[in-house]
């Protein structure tokens, strides 16, 4: 990651931590609304790679605040949600790893049981897939200068892939946590409930699958490969 983006992420972590109790005001005051505004117009001059990084942090720290709407317009909201989802899934995985390495049953940490290891490997794959989808979507959006129409294929594919990961990630994260993960107090629900919500927002699975499927049908069998490799 570039030094500028790392600084941006550090700022985002600090500001979102404050916003977690204070609400959206610190995010507005820190100027996140100007993230995508060109430097010549007094903005930060960031790209979607920056937005992806910032929203992954927001997805964990302030999933209920309208940070995505502050940064990007309506047409880019599905893309923004993919980044929020990637961040939240990463957190669900991290919490799960920490829990199974700490919690002991039958005289050893849960993470030493093969059944638990295999389950966590499954979520790790899903999380990595969604992170990759978010990053590839960011690369496409930056290549087409944030023209959502020109990135329609990638937006559909990434949101659909992220949606499809939600069921697996939330189910396994809760399963390996046991009862503690089902409490209001423990922090897992602060990412899993938003994940359940985001799956249905800005297009559920059926919406994007039908849209993408019709687009690909228009390409034809060989045309799909040609389209994939031309973008």
């Amino acid at each position: 990651m570039s030094a500028a983006r790392e600084m941006l992420c550090d700022t985002a972590r600090a500001v979102f931590a404050e916003a977690a109790t204070a609400g959206i005001a610190p995010v507005e005051e820190a100027g996140f609304a100007l993230l995508l505004v060109p430097e010549g117009d007094g903005g930060f001059g960031g790209d979607w790679g920056d937005v992806n990084a910032v929203l992954q942090i927001a997805g964990v720290a302030v999933p209920d605040l309208p940070v995505a709407a502050l940064i990007a317009g309506e047409a880019l909201q599905p893309a923004a949600i993919v980044s929020l989802m990637a961040g939240a899934m990463g957190k669900a995985l991290a919490l799960s790893i920490e829990h199974v390495n700490t919690r002991q049953q039958f005289g050893r940490p849960l993470g030493k049981f093969q059944a638990v290891q295999q389950s966590l490997a499954v979520i790790a794959c899903e999380v990595r897939a969604v992170e990759a989808a978010a990053a590839a979507l960011a690369a496409r959006l930056d290549a087409v200068e944030l023209d959502a129409a020109a990135a329609d294929f990638e937006i559909a594919a990434a949101k659909l892939r992220a949606n499809r990961a939600v069921g697996v990630v939330t189910a396994i994260a809760h399963q390996v946590h046991g009862a503690i993960g089902f409490t209001a107090e423990y922090e897992l629900n602060r990412v899993t409930i938003p994940l359940m919500r985001w799956r249905g927002e800005h297009g559920n699975d059926a919406y994007w699958a039908a849209k993408l499927g019709r687009q690909v049908a228009g390409f034809g069998g060989r045309g799909l490969w040609e389209a994939l490799t031309a973008r």
Binding site: A133, R161, R164, L212, G213, V216, A217, G220, G221
Partner: peptide, 26 residues
């Protein structure tokens, strides 16, 4: 599958093509 579905696919087939495409792209 895509060729058999044609340019105006049955809705269930379109959904399947969409899901498989999203996975392959990822």
């Amino acid at each position: 599958l895509i060729d058999a579905a044609g340019a105006e696919p049955d809705p269930a087939v379109a959904v399947l093509i969409g899901e498989l495409t999203a996975e392959m792209w990822t």
